[in-house]
Write a protein that binds this DNA or RNA. Structure first.
Lengths: 231, 231
DNA sequence: AATAAAAAGTTTACACTGTTAACTAATTAA
DNA sequence: TTAATTAGTTAACAGTGTAAACTTTTTATT
């Protein structure tokens, strides 16, 4: 049975709230998110928003989930645009897509990886799933390349203690799609953290001015990663 | 001539404001910084704080400058605790000190590298200097090791375009203490960004639960960095 | 020592925030 | 057509940063 008219209009309003929120965040920074301001722009009273989100944090969580999915979509699209066997191409494309998405959606990126909303703490059980999607894109590439002998995992990543090894194995076991090496899990964590450090530094302007503008800073490090992994 | 009584008490009050601010941030998160709350705890009215800081942002900037200096002090102390010629030991010690400081001062770390204060944007001219101190500690180690032939800069870092090369040379020229390789500047940026990505991921809990708790995750990546650099 | 000047601190007020309670208007279901 | 559900309203509370006007305390000068 089709959705009732009421359900439809409710879903539309929910989407509009999020759209206005994103738009305002894009204009005035992620921190400027304000229920009253959203309501004002939508021509309704602020408390009315509480029919759609129990409180501000719930709206933030919804925005974060959307952002994660949007990022994951971008990464997956970049991955799918390359030949499956071209691991180097897939990795480079996904890495670039990661940076591009962050530059195109700085407010959402800050929402995901920063802490721009005072007092907000992300409820892990809601955000883990969509967050994992992004990690998996890179994880699969690296793991598949490793399995195909087209990537060399650095020696240090095989020297985890039994304790850490157990945690890694547990994580690897959670992925049914492939046979995942626990050293590959470690590698994925490190690579992702590395990409994140670069992009965050660029967005938050840790680096000297102009140095990251061109994207060459990012590209060189990607090349170094590929060199190191013989990818 | 000695400072007048008034100047002394003023300096003390200024320090107390910052101390209370840090203490509250440590307890309730960096975002909870509130002038009124600080004033309340100090037993004075909120507008009185404006005699010491022109506005909230100025207080935040002062806290950031202090935090940068505190971090730099820790890194320098770690560096000085090692033999000058022991580049590997110096690098490892400084890297560990970096992580330790971040774990011991999470609110200040978030203040420096995150964006926890709504609407606040750091005035570069005030923060660049103390921020540079931290970068220089690692930069010197890497550069000295490279000059001594005890470190191999990855090939990719020598392939910057003329434009980027110019920016790097400019940066290198700003450091009169040593003969700085432009590829070394690049290396320093990358290494720092990498450390930051790791620590931020640990603090902000990007990784799976428990995975970073022991510090082994960090140590393994430090080892891999040393391996890669033949350090 | 008395007085003028400067600094520090106070209260009051404004505009903003998220959120709750009580109430009304609109839509859907019986 | 009536009853129930949902969506939206206004009013209010507690909190925020900050400006203006005023008072108290400390220092400097006559």
């Amino acid at each position: 049975m089709a959705k009732t008219r009421r359900e439809r209009v409710r879903a539309e309003t929910t989407i509009e709230i999020k759209e206005v929120a994103l738009q305002q965040m894009a204009q005035q920074g992620a921190a400027s998110l304000s229920l009253r301001s959203i309501a004002r722009e939508m021509g309704m009273s602020a408390p009315a928003l509480y029919r759609y989100f129990p409180d501000r944090d719930a709206l933030v969580t919804a925005l974060i989930v959307d952002a994660y999915n949007s990022l994951a979509d971008s990464l997956e699209a970049a991955n799918d645009g390359q030949d499956v066997g071209n691991y180097n191409g897939r990795f480079r494309a996904v890495a670039q897509a990661y940076r591009n998405w962050a530059l195109a959606h700085p407010a959402e990126y800050a929402l995901i990886y920063g802490t721009p909303i005072p007092g907000y703490i992300a409820p892990r059980d809601e955000t883990v799933m969509p967050a994992a999607r992004t990690n998996l894109v890179i994880g699969f590439i690296l793991n598949e390349a490793a399995q195909a002998g087209k990537l060399t995992i650095p020696d240090a990543y095989f020297h985890a203690s039994p304790d850490l090894q157990a945690v890694l194995d547990e994580l690897a076991a959670m992925i049914p799609e492939e046979d995942v090496l626990s050293a590959g899990v470690l590698l994925t964590i490190y690579i992702f953290s590395r990409l994140h450090g670069l992009v965050w530094g660029e967005l938050d302007e840790h680096f000297a001015p102009k140095i990251a503008d061109s994207g060459e800073l990012f590209e060189i490090e990607i090349s170094e990663i590929c060199d190191r992994l013989k990818l």
